[in-house]
Computed example of a mutant assay.
Amino acid sequence: MDTSRDADIGDFLRSRRARIQPEEVGLPPHGRRRVPGLRREEVAQLAGVSVDYYIRLEQGRGTSVSDAVLDAVGRVLRLDPTEQEYLRTVARPGPRRAPASPAAVQKVRPGLRLLLDSMDRVPAFVLGRRMDVLAWNALGDAVVGFSRMPAEERNMPRQVFLDPRAREVYPDWAAVAAETVAHLRLDAGRHPRDRRLATLVGELSIGSEDFRRLWADHQVKEKTYGAKRVRHPLVGELTLPYETLAVAGDPDQMLVVYTPEPASRTAERLDLLASWTATPEPARE
């Protein structure tokens, strides 16, 4: 039995039950409750399944559960599309495979490296499994400083939670931290037997009380688009909208591109930064 997966699905469903009050779904509150939110019996009733069936699902014993049941549970718990995908992933894991060798290294194909190098007006980088930073372009390096990090520390969760400068670098640190953990949790659901991920989560849990709290919340979120504020030591604060693009042919890699508004103060500061860091070493691991 995969006990880590059982804990993941159980903790996830319990956390989603806790955020919904009975009166929100037309149920009487039934007096004082020991725990917040819906009881397992109420979720089962609203989803149209037996209590025993739902309990087996929450205990990780529902590996043959149907799409219809998962959809019904998702509707009751008001899961968004990303949460629904996560539920399907942890409820019905794929065939058991041996974990990847700890020595295995993700590679960025040459064509993607050339694309990065050609994007000389915007910061860009490639993220892989566990949000490891696999490659970057010159302006991306100038903004984040990837080349100055030891190779084993080029990982976004490590930077956010273990780098003592992170709260200064990110004025909206709390939002950045929550988004980072939510995406890492999604990656964990897709790859439940990843030894490196387990090691990373353990390291972050020991090193950061904030990470432990956010990890226990079981939030899941796809990294798609948004905006991030970065306080740069040379040019000041940058407001950086970003787009995250899936890399065709490798579902475990993402191209992240910062897209500042044309003629904005951030665009001007990036131009200045680019002129100061002309012709550095191009995108590398």
Rank of each mutant, 00 (worst) to 15 (best):
D2T: 05
D6M: 13
A7W: 13
D8H: 09
G10D: 08
F12Y: 13
L13F: 10
R14D: 10
S15M: 12
R16L: 10
A18L: 03
P22M: 07
E23N: 10
R33Q: 05
R33I: 02
V35L: 15
G37T: 02
R40C: 10
E41L: 08
E41Y: 11
V43S: 11
Q45Y: 14
A47M: 00
G48Q: 06
V49W: 03
Y53E: 04
L57C: 07
Q59Y: 08
T63N: 15
V69W: 08
R75A: 15
L77P: 07
R78G: 02
E83A: 15
E83L: 09
Q84S: 14
Q84I: 02
R88G: 06
A91L: 09
P95A: 13
R96Q: 07
A103E: 14
V105Y: 10
P110T: 06
R113A: 08
L115S: 13
L115G: 06
D117E: 14
S118T: 06
A124H: 07
V126T: 06
R129K: 08
M131P: 00
V133D: 00
W136P: 00
A138N: 02
G140L: 01
G145V: 00
M156K: 00
R158C: 03
F161L: 04
L162K: 09
L162G: 02
R165Q: 12
V169K: 04
E179L: 11
R190V: 01
H191K: 12
P192W: 15
L197F: 07
L200F: 10
G207Y: 07
S208E: 00
S208W: 01
D210Q: 11
D217Y: 05
A227F: 01
H232N: 03
V235I: 02
L238R: 03
T239K: 08
L240Q: 05
A246I: 04
D250P: 03
D252F: 05
Q253R: 02
L255C: 05
A263F: 11
D271L: 01
L272M: 04
T279P: 00
P280Y: 04
